[in-house]
Design a protein around this nucleic acid. Structure first.
Lengths: 187, 187
DNA sequence: TGTACATCAGTGAACGCGCGTTCACTGATGTAC
DNA sequence: TGTACATCAGTGAACGCGCGTTCACTGATGTAC
């Protein structure tokens, strides 16, 4: 039954990637390890060959989710330096409807405030990276002012997306996204 | 052992109030009914004399948390019609540090996106009320424009407070709140 | 290069625990006469 | 108004279940000679 080192490393990566999606879809507390390992095509018993605890997986999955999310943000802004593109993609129905691959701050926000410091540190680093990424798009401003605007924009994006997922009225949900895109560009 | 109707109603109110605080402090999934009933000074067995399910309590506790939160917002803005007062109080270290009595959208944000529709409807109504409350403070604007600004402000407030609770660096946390207050007034 | 042995990735059963929920019971409250 | 009985708020034990975690086992992989 033993697998090669490469296979084992591949399995580990698959678990982390699956967890990054499952946690965002069902929440951290809402995702059991057995269910999660099943989604990765394994039985739950093997979990502890790869991780010390669920807490450790939460940390690694958060890091993986952030990394994959940044990949998307960078792909949005690769051929188009405008903030508008970022807002349009972040505050889209597409993003709202796909929790599992979306922004971890919006998907896990209130839960992240309650996880262990190691994971919160990973989230903190991710937040700073996201703010920097946006601040660079606010050109023609002093660095401090650009950073301030970027901080507010990031907060508003995360808040708006979170609310758009809570709201029961689909029209209101769309309005939240649309108004967010429009108002953030006005600033 | 039987209690009078008034006492029973009082007990029920106490459970809901306790739940409104416990859910905000530990999250919905993070609050067990036994722990919660204990915090209300009761044993867990009596829970089902008052509620059909935890889900029902979640709905009522969310409504209670929103109501108590609106009471605070209105007390902030009672003798001072300015938006600045609302931003200063909402985006305060005080508010950040007191999950249990604070804004339910910030405290439960990502969890609210996963609860049953009845509770999400309650949250939706609360959000609309909060947006209206702020929109009235944006005077000198057309109603539509005021509402748009209020929507963005509410999203930014909730996003900022959530992030300020995730971040591990206390200085960054304070900066998030300070920048939020400042930038929201600029608009 | 081939052989013998140690390692360990993954399985599936089992652990104790806390979860939401149910229930028999108690005894004060509410109701009917 | 007083008495007899039904109601039911709250208790504490128990339910089945899924949780995170552990473990004996399997057998292919990696290692030592």
């Amino acid at each position: 039954m033993r697998k090669s080192r490469e296979e084992a490393a591949e399995t580990r990566r698959r678990i982390v990637k699956t967890a990054a999606a499952e946690f965002r879809r069902h929440g951290i507390k809402g995702s059991g390890l057995a269910e999660l390992m099943g989604a990765a095509g394994l039985t739950h018993g093997g979990f502890y060959r790869h991780f010390d605890s669920k807490e450790q997986l939460v940390a690694e999955a958060t890091a993986a989710a952030l990394q994959s999310f940044f990949g998307q943000v960078e792909s949005w802004s690769a051929h188009d330096v405008s903030l508008e593109t970022i807002f349009r993609n972040y505050l889209s129905c597409e993003h709202r409807n796909h929790l599992e691959s979306g922004c971890p701050f919006a998907g896990l926000g209130s839960e992240l405030a309650r996880v262990d410091p190691a994971t919160r540190q990973i989230a903190t680093d991710g937040l700073l990276k996201l703010v920097d990424l946006l601040a660079r798009k606010y050109d023609g401003l002093k660095p401090g002012a650009a950073r301030s605007k970027a901080l507010l924009a990031v907060s508003a994006m995360i808040g708006t997306l979170t609310l758009s997922r809570i709201v029961t009225d689909p029209e209101l949900s769309d309005t939240l996204l649309r108004v967010g895109r429009k108002e953030l560009l006005k600033e």
